[in-house]
């Protein structure tokens, strides 16, 4: 059990060693070890409140861990300067559980926001990128709308479009399909797969949606009591004899 997530590989996008996070006296993550291979889709399952969102927020520096090491593309984030961290962050996409659209901006401005401050682009190039991103999530005619005019699921998809527009090398999805109907969910899952094949994106996908886990995941980790307690492919875990693991697949 101790070796879970620790296997040796030279070619990884992201590595977490002995991560511990607590809020006050409450320990949320105890001892998390994880290796994300390049181009891999890693699905993280776990009960609500088990610390999945906290885990990926640590990866982008939104939450400061108590202990542990986070190595992204070979560099230890704790030892990096703010400038380098910013450059690194541009390579990491983060889809918030709550979508977190900027509600004083239109959808188009939301999508353009992360583009500014990167390489110089003409207006047409930006427009093409924006329209392409909107097309990807199936909402091409929402560009002029305000986030308040959109439904919950639409916001989630715009959030996804905004994250994918920079074609990040590492993607962290926090429940990409929650609140979506089965058909759209499947489309989003396929989009995640497409990102993997087209852009060679390495992703961590947090989800409660087993369909999404089945379609997208190359490997699945299950988090329990602050540690990863099970690991395997979808099929392997489905056949697991551990009743707790099995309960996820019912």
């Amino acid at each position: 059990m101790e070796d879970i997530g620790k296997e040796e590989t030279g070619n990884f996008a992201l590595e977490i060693k002995k991560l511990k996070v607590s809020f006050g006296t409450k320990v949320v993550l105890k001892d998390i070890n994880l290796l994300l291979k390049k181009g891999e889709n890693l699905v993280v399952l776990g009960k609500s409140g088990s610390g999945k969102s906290v885990l990926i927020k640590c990866l982008v520096g939104l939450i400061e861990p108590d202990e542990g090491e986070i190595v992204i593309q070979g560099s230890d984030t704790a030892r990096m300067k703010e400038r380098d961290l910013e450059t690194l962050r541009k390579k990491i996409g983060f889809l918030f559980q709550s979508a977190a659209l900027y509600d004083s901006m239109t959808v188009r401005e939301n999508l353009e926001f992360p583009l500014e401050g990167t390489e110089a682009r003409t207006e047409e190039e930006t427009e093409t990128l924006v329209m392409e991103a909107l097309q990807n999530v199936g909402l091409p005619d929402t560009a002029g709308k305000m986030p308040s005019e959109l439904s919950g699921g639409m916001r989630k998809r715009i959030g996804l479009a905004r994250t994918l527009i920079l074609k990040p090398e590492i993607m962290l999805y926090d429940e990409p399909t929650t609140g979506l109907d089965p058909i759209t969910s499947r489309e989003i899952s396929k989009l995640i797969l497409e990102m993997q094949t087209k852009n060679k994106t390495s992703s961590i996908i947090i989800t409660h949606d087993m369909e999404c886990a089945r379609i997208t995941g190359n490997r699945i980790l299950i988090i329990k009591d602050g540690v990863f307690s099970a690991e395997g492919t979808f099929e392997e875990l489905k056949k697991s004899e551990d009743p707790w693991v099995h309960s996820f697949f019912e």
Binding site: K57, V60, G61, L62, E86, T87, R89, K90, I92, F94, F96, S98, A100, L101, Y102, D103, S104, F113, P114, E116, G117, T118, R162, L166
Partner: peptide, 21 residues
């Protein structure tokens, strides 16, 4: 009020994550 609501709805976090300041 504007900044606080951006903070609680994670919009400020989202900006930070996207590499803007």
């Amino acid at each position: 009020a504007e900044l606080a609501s951006m903070k609680v709805t994670e919009q400020i976090d989202a900006m930070q994550v996207s590499g803007r300041r």
